[in-house]
Simulated assay, not measured.
Amino acid sequence: MSENNPLPFYLQFTAGAIAGVSEICAMYPLDVVKTRLQLKLGNSHSSILDTFKKIIRNEGFFRLYRGLLAPILIEAPKRATKFAANEQYSVIYRKLFNTNELNQKLSVLTGVSAGITEGALIVPFELIKIRMQDKNNVMILNIAIQVGLYETTMDCATKIYRTEGLMAFYKGLEATLWRHAFWNGGYFGTIHYIRQSIPRRKEEDSRLIDNFIAGTIGGTIGTILNTPFDVVKTRIQGDTSTISRSSWTMSYLLQIAKKEGYGSLRPSIRFRSLYKGFTPKVLRLGPGGGILLVVFELVTRWMKNIA
């Protein structure tokens, strides 16, 4: 992501924060729908539109933004980590492998490394977000009055600490690391490949369009790669039980495929259970990846112009 004169870390931090908050505010309702679909067990299915309608009808429009505060609070360090760590790892790996150019393999490696760093940072915030999005944590008293089991973000954090302990905030850590490693590896690797494959245009507006296309394709590839790990992460973090149980990611993946494969012996059908919530997720993170890259590029360009 570097230009000839990369910005100082604190400016990369700011640019990443602005890009992240812009993306999440625009696409967050799809994230709520994705979580609801992933938390469903067994054969129950709903379309994206049907899930939207049910949430708005039964819980109100603003339920689509429930749990937004936690990801907003983490967006600044999260996106700064994504872009700044990717920059730093690219420098480290170029020195390690004694090369001046970031090739395709190294772009994937830097993305994976940045993803692991990012994932380790955001686990508690992701857990709170999942709990706030889960409809089982909303008690509907009647059509007019709705009271959340977790009333606010701080109330959610407090109750998790009191009932499940401090370490509960790191439930799903391993699955989160897998999720972000695969997404960032796919995202940055795809962006590098597309940028190397198309001629670099001089017109700034044309370059922004190219960046949006590259970011959207990168976000889509990353989502295809990481959705099974996201399903596991959502299930583990959505579990409010204090009973100790196996939560290793790979064994959990096999359990989901076995129990929710709709009774079919066909691998394609069993595999489908690992992609619950994929459509709203890819609708968010495909274009969302494009929004991220474009806003980041716009903000960093503006910062360089006024520097």
Rank of each mutant, 00 (worst) to 15 (best):
R245S: 15
S241V: 05
R245V: 13
M250N: 05
G185K: 04
T223D: 12
R179Q: 15
M250C: 05
S251C: 09
D210R: 00
R207F: 01
G186K: 10
L225T: 10
D210Y: 01
R235A: 02
R195I: 00
W248V: 08
H180W: 13
T190I: 12
G172Y: 04
K202V: 02
T176Q: 14
Q196P: 01
G218D: 07
D210A: 03
G215F: 04
A214T: 02
T227S: 14
R200D: 00
I221Q: 09
K233V: 06
M250A: 05
T242G: 11
R245T: 14
I243F: 03
K171L: 04
D239S: 11
G186D: 03
L173H: 06
V232P: 01
F229C: 15
N184Y: 11
T240H: 08
S241Y: 05
I224H: 07
V232R: 02
I243A: 13
K202I: 02
T227E: 14
G172C: 06
T223E: 14
H180I: 10
T176L: 08
A181L: 12
T240Y: 02
R195M: 00
G215E: 03
W183E: 11
F182I: 12
T234P: 07
N211V: 02
S241F: 05
Y187C: 10
I243R: 13
L177E: 08
G186S: 10
S241A: 06
I224M: 14
P228Q: 13
W178I: 09
L254Q: 08
R235V: 06
F188I: 06
T176G: 15
T227Q: 15
H192I: 04
K202C: 01
G238A: 08
Q237E: 13
R195L: 01
I209D: 02
I191E: 04
